[in-house]
Structures are given as C-alpha cells and as structure tokens.
C-alpha cells in the first residue's frame, strides 16, 4: 500500500507540474468563462450553455485527456525498470497508480471547470432551466466518457513504446468511434450521442433508460480496460 501511495503521489506531482495539464486547466477555464459571459448577451438558456461547455471536453479538450493518459507509461520506459520496478514494487501497484492518478487529474480539471461554469451559468442566466441534480447527472455522464478515454490512453501508453504514435492512434480512434458505434447499433455508447442527450439531461428531460445506460455504457468498458491493462502490464517484459 505504501508503494502504491508513493507512486500515486509521484505521478500526481508529475501531472501537476506538466505544462499540458496546466495549459488545459487554464484554456478550458477561459473558454468556459467566455461562454458564461456570452450567454447573458445572447439570452441563451442555462442548459444549453452548460452543455456546450461540457461537450467541449469531449470534442476539443479530449486531446489533452489523451495526451495526459498516453504519456503515463511510454515516456518512462527507461526509468521504469531501472528506478521503479527493480525496487520492492509490484507491477499492479505501478499501473494502478498510473490509472488512478491520470483519472483523478482529469476528474479534478473537468469537475472544477464544468461544475464551476454550471453554477455560474445558472446564477447569471435569464433562463435558469437547470437543477443541481440534473447538472450533477450531466457531469457524471461526460465524466464517465472522459474516464473511459483516460483508461484507453493509459492502456495504449503501456502497450506502445512511442507516446506520439499512441496519441495519434487514440485521436483517430476517438473521433471515428461514433461511426463504429452507429454501425453496431449502440450509438448511446458514442461520445457524439451526448451532443443530443446532454442538453436533455441538463433540462431533466432525458429518457429514463438512458440515465443509467450512458454511465454504465462507459463505466463497464472502463473497468474492463483497467483489468486488461493490469493483466497486460503484469505479463509484459520491461
């Protein structure tokens, strides 16, 4: 447990010091602030503005999520064997610490920006058509999709030796996944489907079955990716 906590702390410090994470936080907060300020002049409903802000995390800021996830293991490949895994540390502790730290970093940035902007939207909107429960539900929907993306990115990072290749592959996969899910007739699993479901969710008008289908649809694959990454990393030669 001590080794896991040490690895987790070390990775969180690394993320906090990285310009990617800092840049993402600043840019997404600025973009959210601009959107919130713009709503008052345009007179948009709060649900629409909050949905727009949250959806940018899926379609624009997802690049940062991919970079944070994909830079978890591959850039450390030399350091990993020499400095970390030759010590009294299990592979499971290492990869779990990476998955947890990267997921936590994404959660912190997203929840703080999306949560803060949702409150500001509701507070200053001329049409405050959102409730705390609906905003929370929307945040959970988008967050599960982002956590799935982090898990896949860390998994790719443990498989591939080159971070850049992992990032390119993930970006291509992320933006083409909608078509695949459409083809497989499970479009509710597609992040693109959230474009229509999220505003409905924030207004409290989402179909009851989608309320649990969306988080489970991303949550179960996330758990599966964590387990697969764990199994693969335990098997891998360093």
């Amino acid at each position: 447990m001590g080794a896991y906590v040490a690895l987790l702390h070390r990775d969180l410090v690394t993320i906090a010091r990285s310009w990617v994470a800092r840049g993402w936080l600043v840019l997404s907060a600025l973009a959210a602030a601009v959107a919130v300020l713009g709503q008052s002049t345009q007179g948009l409903p709060a649900s629409q503005v909050a949905a727009q802000i949250q959806l940018t995390f899926l379609f624009l800021w997802s690049i940062f999520v991919i970079v944070i996830g994909a830079s978890a293991v591959a850039p450390e490949s030399g350091v990993l064997a020499d400095s970390v895994l030759s010590r009294p540390v299990t592979r499971s502790q290492y990869i779990l610490a990476k998955l947890t730290a990267r997921s936590f970093a994404v959660l912190v940035v997203f929840v703080s920006v999306a949560g803060g902007s949702a409150y500001a939207t509701w507070r200053y909107s001329k049409l405050p058509d959102v409730s705390f429960a609906d905003v929370s539900l929307g945040v959970v929907h988008v967050l599960t999709a982002l956590l799935f993306l982090v898990a896949v990115s860390v998994a790719m990072s443990s498989v591939m030796r080159t971070t850049f290749v992992a990032i390119v592959a993930l970006v291509l996969a992320w933006y083409s996944v909608g078509a695949l899910f459409e083809f497989l007739n499970v479009s509710f699993l597609s992040p693109f489907e959230l474009r229509t479901s999220l505003p409905e969710c924030l207004r409290g008008e989402l179909d009851a079955d989608l309320l649990w289908k969306i988080p489970l649809g991303f949550g179960i694959p996330t758990v599966a990716v964590w387990l697969a990454t764990l199994a693969y990393f335990n098997y891998k030669d360093l």
């Binding site: 450390e76 030399g78 400095s83 030759s86 009294p88 540390v89 299990t90």
Partner: peptide
C-alpha cells in the same frame, strides 16, 4: 516485491526521473 525487498539493483548506465 517481497524478494526485491532483499535485493539492491544497479543497472548499467542507470536512468532516473
């Protein structure tokens, strides 16, 4: 990890963070 607790390893040209 229980075995590595008793082992100190120095690699050739080691890499560190």
């Amino acid at each position: 990890s229980d075995v590595r607790r008793h082992v100190g390893y120095l690699p050739t040209n080691p890499e560190f963070p």
